[in-house]
Simulated scan of single mutants.
Amino acid sequence: MHKKTLLALTAMLVWAGPARAQTATDCPQLPPGSNAQWEVQQGPGFVFCRAVERDSARQAFAVTIGREASFKPRRTDRVGDRVTIDGTRTYWHAPQNDLLAGTLVRETLLELPSGDYAHIIVRASDETQLARTLQDAEALHFSDVRLGSK
């Protein structure tokens, strides 16, 4: 009986190890029913997550997660009302950039519970696409995101 208990505990520990390691992820959780999937690029001190639409291969939005804030929001660039992303109140910003003429761009910065920062960038060709993409970006969940989780 003691041997069976020891084997059972050993098996539980073996299974618990990988499960614990898998709870931390590089990218936030996409909203249920999202048509996107993550493409991930690791960098020194950051992770770049591209949400790419499955049917069109178009980048819906991107999230850069790093130990330092890669985006410095300016109050003068704020657009719209305050939004909440995974429990954090923030504003979308529309920075002026002549290189992106004809493209609607929105950016925001979140400080994550881990102490890392998430810079979310949305680019769209029209207002309808922008509204849909902002809705998906605002439904992201960062609770298990840890920089360098792999």
Rank of each mutant, 00 (worst) to 15 (best):
A21P: 03
K4F: 08
V40W: 03
D136R: 15
R106M: 07
T108R: 02
A51P: 05
F61N: 06
Q29S: 11
E53S: 10
A131M: 09
Q29W: 00
W38G: 08
A94L: 04
P113M: 08
A62G: 11
T23Y: 04
G87R: 06
G45T: 03
S34V: 02
L100E: 06
T108W: 01
E68G: 00
V83H: 07
T10M: 14
N35K: 12
G33D: 04
S125E: 15
Q41M: 12
A8W: 07
P73T: 08
R123G: 04
T103K: 10
Q41F: 06
I120G: 02
V63Q: 04
K72D: 13
D77Y: 07
F142G: 00
L7F: 12
K150G: 13
G45Q: 06
P18N: 11
H119G: 04
M1E: 10
D126C: 05
A60Q: 09
R132F: 13
R132G: 13
R123P: 00
C27D: 05
A62C: 01
M12D: 01
P95R: 05
R89E: 14
Q22S: 12
A69Q: 05
L99A: 09
A62E: 05
V47G: 03
R146V: 12
G33P: 00
N35C: 03
R54S: 09
V122Y: 01
D55P: 00
T10F: 15
V47K: 04
F142W: 13
V63I: 09
G43C: 01
Y117P: 04
S143K: 14
E39I: 12
G45N: 10
V52E: 02
N97K: 01
D126N: 15
Q42V: 10
V79G: 02
T103E: 09
T76A: 13
T25G: 05
D26G: 02
R67H: 12
L104D: 03
E39P: 02
S114K: 02
L13N: 09
D116H: 08
V105Q: 11
L30D: 01
V122A: 10
